[in-house]
């Protein structure tokens, strides 16, 4: 076996600036795509559950396509495909000192739209898990649909959504590697660039694997904390549930006051 240990340690412990940039891009892509995906997914879920039939079918079709085709195909289609077809070309956007390259935008769009389809199903399941009596009680107090959702249903759906959302973000951290095919210099593409210069595939892929493993492990810890904070689904042991609910309630109160 040929494994250059010094080379391995060097790249693991003293990553180059380009490598750290790649890492940063991976993180930014993951967080932004997951956030956008969650927001779009929320509206898709509400659309899917609405009484307006065309809206339902629209969302169903959307979910069907996004979950039924490979993410890699979607990424290339959105960036290269649309441009080649003369339909839409992602141009670089300049925001003062920061320039967002076209391929990064396309990668974000693809990741977000793909994620939204999965989040739509997760959020729909979360909303369905909230007892219909909650909605009826809220309605009987004169709440409009928007209020019922915002004040009563969604806060209670959150606890059902948080665990799968965590898993989605874990997957997202790794799925960002796919945008390397359209030239987004995230962690994997940076690694590939390095390998083509050094031919040290074994060592460098070990390094990049460890980086992803570290990211997902750290996220696992954070996820555990978030889940503890939002409380377990109600209540085998009353004291525990009330503690969780208290935290939950306080968080919501803060959200309502716009401090979170």
């Amino acid at each position: 076996m040929s494994f250059d240990w010094p080379f391995f340690w060097h790249y693991l412990l003293r990553p180059s600036a380009a490598y750290l940039n790649g890492l940063m891009l991976t993180l930014v892509l993951s967080v932004v795509a997951q956030s956008l995906g969650t927001v779009i997914g929320l509206f898709a879920a509400l659309g899917r559950m609405s009484h307006i039939a065309p809206l339902q079918y629209l969302v169903r079709g959307y979910v069907w396509i996004m979950r039924g085709t490979p993410l890699l195909v979607q990424i290339v289609f959105i960036y290269t495909g649309l441009a080649a077809g003369g339909i839409f070309r992602f141009e670089d956007i300049s925001l003062g000192i920061l320039t967002i390259p076209g391929n990064v935008q396309a990668g974000l769009v693809a990741l977000s739209l793909n994620e939204a389809a999965y989040m739509a199903e997760i959020i729909r399941a979360g909303i369905s898990s909230v007892d219909s009596g909650q909605t009826e009680a809220a309605k009987s107090l004169g709440m409009t649909y928007g209020l019922v959702m915002r004040r009563i249903v969604l806060p209670q759906a959150t606890r059902f959504v948080i665990p799968p959302l965590g898993n989605e973000f874990n997957a997202m951290l790794k799925n960002t590697t796919l945008v390397s095919v359209i030239g987004v210099p995230e962690l994997l593409l940076t690694t590939e660039t390095l390998t083509s210069a050094t031919f040290r595939v074994f060592e460098l892929y070990s390094v990049v694997a460890l980086y992803y493993l570290t990211l997902t492990t750290l996220w696992g810890v954070v996820q555990g904390r978030i889940e503890a904070r939002f409380g377990e689904p109600t209540a085998q042991t009353p004291t525990e549930a009330s503690f969780g609910e208290r935290l939950f309630g306080r968080t919501l109160a803060r959200m309502a006051r716009g401090k979170l």
Binding site: G133, Q134, E136
Partner: peptide, 14 residues
């Protein structure tokens, strides 16, 4: 119109 339900339906998070 106030309504009281068989299953109370209090908001669990409040």
């Amino acid at each position: 119109i106030g309504m009281v339900f068989q299953r109370f339906n209090l908001f669990h998070h409040k």
